[in-house]
Every structure is written in structure tokens, then in C-alpha cells.
């Protein structure tokens, strides 16, 4: 892999109260690839993802140490500007959570927050990113309707468009298809593969098959520890750790 790393994690430790959730994690996430973080539930996948955009800050009683370097900036630095960091990363949650406003306003929300007021520019942004999330054709006639009229799958693509609209470099997905029907999941996966030429994509998933289908790079966590990471082909066909081998075979869950 000659690819440069987009996110580099060095000695990351996360405690919730007395619980040691992430133990001395060091890893790197390649630029413009899809990286899958896998592992059984409760292993710290989501926590790792949320430490990338510091949403972890809002958890009660959390302590974080180590470094997370994004474009050579340590985002865990107390002086780092949180809104600026988050803007660099679009986030997709397990279930779609559209904001309580119209479809148009959902996509325009981020740009407006960052000071874009010009109606024509907003129109253009909304169309561009709804198209990127392959939702434009389905909603172009009803942009002013509340986002809650859309189906779950459409809502998730709307959330993707909302995240893309602030022009991030990274897309974070926390099991982004787990609440969707197979067809909608497939559309999201397809959109991801289309997007990876422009974005670094990191998804958390507990579905091994999804990781096989999508990932270029895999990170395997178990009980808060990093067990193995590497290019997807090597990981699935030639795992180095016995634990990885067992997990892939489905012996650990």
C-alpha cells in the first residue's frame, strides 16, 4: 500500500468512568478507500469511530488520551476547533435521523450553518448533493415536504446528502445499513463505492459479508483491543492472527 494515510491513530485510550473501552489503539486509515471496522458488538467499534469526529466528547464521564491525526492535525488537541473538525467528516448513523424540517432544508442545513445564504447557491448545492447520494430523481418534485415523509432508505440517503453538503473529506458510517431493508442497503453500498474516488470512507459494521463486499482495508477490534488491520484481501484470505481466523469463520460472535 503506497497510499498515504488520511487518519492516523496513535496510542488512543478511551475510558468511560472505570471502564477501559479502547486500549492503546494505533492504526492508520488510507486515503480514498473504504475502511471497515469490524468486530463483535461491544468491542469499541462505534467509540473508535466517534472519537474521529469528537462526538465522543458529549458522553458523560469520558476520558480520552492519545492522538488522532487527520491531515497532520491532532484533533484530540484541546485547542483544536471542534466544529471545524466535524465539518471535515460526514456522519451516517445506524438509523437515519432527518432534522425536523423539509428535505431541502435538511441538505441546506450545513451550508447555512457555515454562512451560505445565497438562495441560488443553496439550490445548486442541494441538487448536487442529493444527486451524489442518488436521491435527487426521487425527491426533486417535493423538496419542500418534511423529510419524515421519505422511506427509511431514502431518509438514510438524505442524511448522506446532508453530510456531503458541507464538503467533507471523510465519510463516517456507524452501521449505516443496519436499519434498512436489503434493497436500500444495497443502494447505500453502491453509493459508497461510487463516492470512494473522492472521499475517505470509514464504516463500522458487524456484517462480515458487507465488509468483504465493500472494504479495501479492514480493522478488527476485539474487547477494546486492535487485533489485526490490513488490506481487505490479505485480511480475509491470509489472516495473521488466530483470533482473526476464528472470527472470520464465525466462531467468535
Amino acid at each position: 500500500m503506497e497510499n498515504r494515510a488520511h487518519i492516523r491513530v496513535e496510542g488512543l485510550n478511551v475510558h468511560f468512568g472505570s471502564e477501559h473501552v479502547l486500549k492503546d489503539i494505533s492504526l492508520s486509515i488510507p486515503d480514498r478507500k473504504i475502511t471497515a471496522i469490524i468486530g463483535p458488538s461491544g468491542c469499541g467499534k462505534t467509540t473508535l469511530l466517534r472519537s474521529f469526529n469528537r462526538l465522543i466528547d458529549s458522553s458523560e464521564g469520558v476520558r480520552v488520551s492519545g492522538r488522532v491525526m487527520v491531515d497532520d492535525e491532532n484533533i484530540l488537541d484541546a485547542r483544536a476547533e471542534v466544529t471545524h473538525i466535524r465539518r471535515k467528516m460526514g456522519l451516517l448513523l445506524q438509523r437515519p435521523y432527518p432534522l425536523p424540517m423539509s428535505i431541502y432544508d435538511n441538505v441546506a442545513y450545513g451550508p447555512r450553518i457555515h454562512g451560505i445564504r445565497d438562495r441560488r447557491r443553496l439550490d445548486e448545492i442541494v441538487e448536487r448533493f442529493l444527486s451524489k447520494a442518488s436521491l435527487w430523481d426521487e425527491v426533486r418534485q417535493r423538496l419542500s415536504q418534511p423529510a419524515s415523509v421519505l422511506s427509511l432508505g431514502q431518509q438514510q440517503r438524505l442524511c448522506l446528502a446532508r453530510g456531503l453538503a458541507v464538503e467533507p473529506e471523510i465519510i463516517l458510517g456507524d452501521e449505516p445499513t443496519s436499519a434498512l431493508d436489503p434493497q436500500s442497503s444495497q443502494r447505500i453500498e453502491q453509493t459508497f463505492t461510487e463516492l470512494k474516488s473522492d472521499y475517505t470512507i470509514v464504516i463500522v459494521t458487524h456484517i462480515l459479508r458487507q465488509a468483504r463486499r465493500l472494504a479495501d482495508h479492514v480493522i478488527f477490534l476485539y474487547l477494546g483491543e486492535l487485533i489485526e488491520q490490513g488490506p481487505a484481501w490479505d485480511f480475509f484470505n491470509n489472516p495473521k492472527q488466530p483470533m482473526t481466523r476464528e472470527y472470520i469463520k464465525g466462531l467468535i460472535s
Binding site: N53, S58, R86, R87, P100, I113
Partner: peptide, 27 residues
């Protein structure tokens, strides 16, 4: 108000006050 709705707003780079004003209060 679900925490995730706040996170959706924070994740695009909104401040807490912006999130309260535009999302939490609305919801």
C-alpha cells in the same frame, strides 16, 4: 429529543447553540 438528532446537527459542524436553536427547539 433523541441524542442522534443533536449529533446529526453537530456532525455537520454546528455549535451547540446553533443545534439548540435550529434543531432541538424545533423538534
Amino acid at each position: 429529543v433523541p441524542q442522534e438528532v443533536r449529533e446529526a446537527s453537530l456532525a455537520v459542524g454546528a455549535t451547540r447553540w446553533q443545534t439548540v436553536k435550529h434543531v432541538v427547539l424545533r423538534k
